[in-house]
């Protein structure tokens, strides 16, 4: 079972994850009208910016984060922003959206000018997240774990970051054992998604470049 301290940390992280989302009026705009490729680009850029702001607010609320070296905080956020964004959008795609909405969203992304070679792995990732049928707690914890990765470039005090990441990993491990007794590999599968995210992150700068060229 989760200890009282672990339960409190879990609740804190999940509450913060729930609280900090992209504003609804922005997500609603995704589903409205037809946009030109240029408008699509601007809207997705605006959403990406909003996502980063939301991510930072979520991260500030992770106990201990703000006590880290300031430049290490920036290195962690820079290293994980893209991964956290893919995780959030995967959640959006796998949630039960009103009829037709996922299609509108998918079409908008496909028409954004991003080349097919990057789109396919992205939707494959969304599918692989969908297969895990993750609950909100798992999304929040996995996001926190991705952010608190000590091996990001330019992190000076890796030990301090490890010290924050380890308790979150332990909670996720226990949470998986409690909620997926039928699948002892569930925790390992979740961590496997972090590896997929690293690959997507790696290709992201290439993707942005091709997007701009298009």
């Amino acid at each position: 079972e989760l200890s009282p301290g672990q339960l409190a940390l879990l609740k804190h992280i999940v509450d913060s994850y729930d609280k900090h989302r992209i504003p609804q009026d922005m997500t609603k705009r995704l589903l409205q009208d037809q946009y030109s490729t240029e408008e699509n680009f601007l809207l997705l850029t605006e959403m990406a910016t909003s996502h980063v702001q939301v991510l930072v607010e979520f991260t500030k609320n992770i106990p201990g984060f703000q006590a880290l070296d300031h430049e290490d905080q920036i290195a962690l956020l820079k290293g994980s922003a893209v991964e956290a964004m893919f995780l959030r959008s995967a959640q959006m795609f796998t949630r039960k959206l009103p009829h037709g909405h996922p299609d509108v969203l998918e079409e908008r992304i496909r028409k954004s000018g991003i080349s097919e070679e990057f789109i396919t792995p992205m939707f494959n990732f969304y599918k692989s997240i969908g297969e895990l049928q993750m609950v909100q707690e798992e999304h929040a914890l996995l996001t926190a774990i991705a952010i608190l990765s000590p091996d990001r470039p330019y992190v000076k005090d890796q030990e301090a970051v490890e010290h924050l990441q380890e308790p979150v990993l332990e909670i996720l491990d226990k949470f998986c054992k409690l909620h997926h007794p039928e699948d002892p590999q569930h925790f390992a599968r979740l961590l496997g998604r972090l590896t997929e995210l690293r690959t997507l992150n790696h290709h992201h700068s290439e993707m942005l470049l091709s997007w701009r060229v298009n």
Partner: peptide
């Protein structure tokens, strides 16, 4: 506008709380 800022600028501003204002 935020869309003209790089990732690091957005992070720095958000850490300082400037976006909330």
């Amino acid at each position: 506008p935020a869309s003209n800022l790089g990732l690091e600028d957005i992070i720095r501003k958000a850490l300082m709380g400037n976006f909330e204002d």
